[in-house]
Structures are given as C-alpha cells and as structure tokens.
C-alpha cells in the first residue's frame, strides 16, 4: 500500500470522527428528553424529533468517509495507486466535516436539550426549538459542502 492511500484513508477516518460529536450531542439531548418524559410521556414524539437533530453530523461524516473510500477504490474495487500529494489532498477533504462536525454536534446537542426543556413548559413551541437547533446545524452543512466541493475537484 502506498503512503498516499494511507493518507487518504486517514482523511476518511477524520471525516467519520464527526460521529463522536453526534454521539455526545444526541446523548445530551436524550438525557434532557428522558427527564421530560418522566413528567409527561405524551411528549415522546416531540422530544425524539429534537433529539435526532444532532445526529446528522455523524451522517455527514459517514457520507464523506464513504465518498473518499469509494474514490480511492477501497470499497468494492481495486485500490488506486495514489501519490502522497493526492493522499494528502484527500486527507484535507475529510477535515472540515470531521472537525466542524464534532463541535457543532455537541453544541447542537446542548441547544436541542434546551429546546426539549422549552417544549416541556410550552408544548406548542416545538418549531422554535427545532429552528434554534437548525441554526447550529448550518455550520455542519457548510462544512459538508466545502468537504464535498474539495473532494469533487480532484480527479484521480
């Protein structure tokens, strides 16, 4: 295996690390949700919707990791012989979605946890809680976009 290929795989690994943030974020939201359900089990659906929001960063990470692995032929193909420059380039592609994903998912987890508290007191305000969460998500979406545009610009 060439150094370039290894670097590209590291890039995929970094992208997939966004899941760390999602795990923590979803966990934070879940703790808050369970507390609310203890008082009012009818709010399960609403809290679940909010809890799912920080989960997307992990999916964006998975997406990018998968794209990189497919491009270098690690999934169902023959591995491409990359130069180390190409490998480094693909590593860079993984960084935005991975790094931004980790912190934005944690922050989003805290935001939706607050949103869950909000619907505990005011059940009609689910949409507003969701929008606050979506404000945080924006940056994960932008990071995914940049990762993707970088990835798309290189032809092997």
């Amino acid at each position: 295996m060439s150094l370039g290929l290894a670097l590209a795989v590291i890039g995929a690994a970094i992208a997939a690390l966004a899941g760390v943030g999602s795990g923590i974020g979803v966990g934070i939201a879940g703790e808050a949700a369970a507390g609310v359900i203890a008082e009012d089990p009818k709010k399960f659906g609403q809290t679940l919707v909010l809890q799912a929001l920080p989960g997307t960063q992990g999916i964006y990470g998975l997406l990018m990791a998968f794209l990189i692995l497919t491009k270098i032929g690690m999934l169902g193909g023959t591995p491409v012989d990359l130069t180390w420059t190409q490998g480094l380039y693909l590593l860079a592609c993984g960084i935005p979605v991975g790094v931004v994903g980790i912190w934005s998912a944690i922050a989003q987890g805290k935001t939706v946890a607050a949103g869950i508290m909000l619907i505990a007191k005011r059940p009609g305000e689910l949409a507003k809680g969701m929008i606050y969460g979506a404000m945080v998500e924006t940056y994960a979406v932008l990071a995914l976009l940049i990762s993707f545009l970088m990835y798309n610009a290189i032809q092997l």
């Binding site: 999916i59 964006y60 998975l62 997406l63 169902g76 979406v141 932008l142 995914l144």
Partner: peptide, 27 residues
Amino acid sequence: VLSYSRLLALGLASAVIAQVFNALGGM
C-alpha cells in the same frame, strides 16, 4: 445568500447516503 447552499448540501446528503446503502448491499 450562501445560506441557501444548504439546498445543495442536504440534497447531496440524502442522495449520497442512499447510494451508500445501495453500495453496501451491492458488495
């Protein structure tokens, strides 16, 4: 205006993840 880039990003997300699962199955 750049905020609308999410139209592309989320569209890609749903399309690519669908392809991921297809590819996993195809393996």
